[in-house]
């Protein structure tokens, strides 16, 4: 599919959406008019008239919900195709311009076990992941996925009725980079406002206070070995982490696991998702993914992950 075909597909989706929105609006007006007219006609019988208008609310609600379901069914397949093709055309292109060895799988993500095995974060009761990217920038291999983790919460009201609601624990990007230092124990550095669902890899992890109080005021550090925490978190590197936190202004977790750096950005966003109903503007669409792509390049540049000064051992 090329851009003009994509635009055609979007026009089709928008026209279906408009058509059903019109039907919903006409239905709303007709049902309300019938309700009001009936109320007026029955106004002599005050007690009956009082209940006429409210009795029209149920059919109105059923009608609106039915229309919404039909609309979503009609456009769901086309929306899926649109998103898939949009990502192939705009996102993949933008990724290939910036990185080498690009693999982009919009519908795939990190498997749940992958996050579980980091022992840095719970995967909750519902786990979703998409937009898997694997690529290389300045000779640094990285991968990333969007992740949405939710927990099921049940509450019981005074009548003993149970209500279930879902609470988002983490929604954002999980990035994994090759790290330029070899370390023997894992380290977790998380901002104090990072969701409390992490569990620090079990009992072997203990809290470490770094020597800089400004850093300790923003981050909590947990590690299996204090020396490794001080080895990874040099004063210069701590400055960089503070700068990243300040620039992104979201809750972040940095995990150093098996010579890899995992970064969890809890931005409550589904990155790279297009708005199906907003008409495509080619120039704008080419610009849009750049901001999210620059987050990756900025992290590599800022943390100087391409510096392989410490990689070799004798």
């Amino acid at each position: 599919m090329n851009i003009s075909e994509l635009k055609e597909l979007q026009k089709k989706i928008i026209s279906i959406d408009k058509k059903y929105n019109k039907i919903a609006l006409i239905g709303l007006i007709v049902i309300l008019i019938i309700g009001i007219v009936t109320t007026i006609l029955l106004s002599k019988y005050f007690m009956v008239a009082m209940f006429v208008l409210p009795s029209f609310l149920w059919p109105l609600m059923i009608f609106e919900v039915t229309i919404a379901i039909i609309k979503s069914k009609k456009i769901s397949e086309d929306s899926k195709t649109f998103k898939k093709e949009y990502k192939r055309i705009f996102i993949l292109n933008a990724l290939e311009k910036e990185f080498t060895n690009v693999t982009y799988k919009p519908e795939k993500g990190f498997p749940e076990e992958f996050i579980e095995n980091t022992h840095m974060m719970t995967t909750g009761d519902s786990y979703e992941s998409n937009d898997y990217i694997e690529a290389k920038y300045k000779n640094v291999n990285f991968s990333q996925s969007d992740i949405h983790i939710r927990e099921k919460h049940e509450t019981t009201d005074s009548d003993g009725n149970k209500k279930t609601h879902w609470v988002t624990v983490f929604q954002g990007r999980w990035l994994v980079f090759d790290f330029n230092k070899e370390f023997k124990a894992n380290v977790q550095v998380a901002t104090h406002d990072f969701p409390s669902a992490q569990y620090y890899g079990g009992e072997n992890f203990k809290k470490v206070k770094m020597e800089e109080s400004a850093f300790n005021n923003i981050f909590s550090v947990y590690t299996q070995n204090e020396h490794e925490a001080f080895y990874i978190l040099t004063p210069h590197f701590m400055e960089k982490l503070k700068k990243i936190k300040e620039e992104l202004n979201i809750s972040i977790m940095f995990c150093f696991i098996d010579n890899k750096l995992h970064i969890a950005l809890n931005n409550y966003k589904d990155t790279f998702e297009p708005n199906v109903l907003k008409e495509i503007n080619e120039t704008e669409e080419q610009e849009k993914p750049l901001k999210d792509i620059r987050t990756i390049t900025n992290l590599i540049d800022e943390l100087r992950l391409d510096n392989d000064l410490f990689r070799k051992e004798v």
Binding site: E228, Y231, F310
Partner: peptide
Amino acid sequence: ADVEEHLQAA
């Protein structure tokens, strides 16, 4: 360079 980083950490 790596050894010196370890020394600084220690």
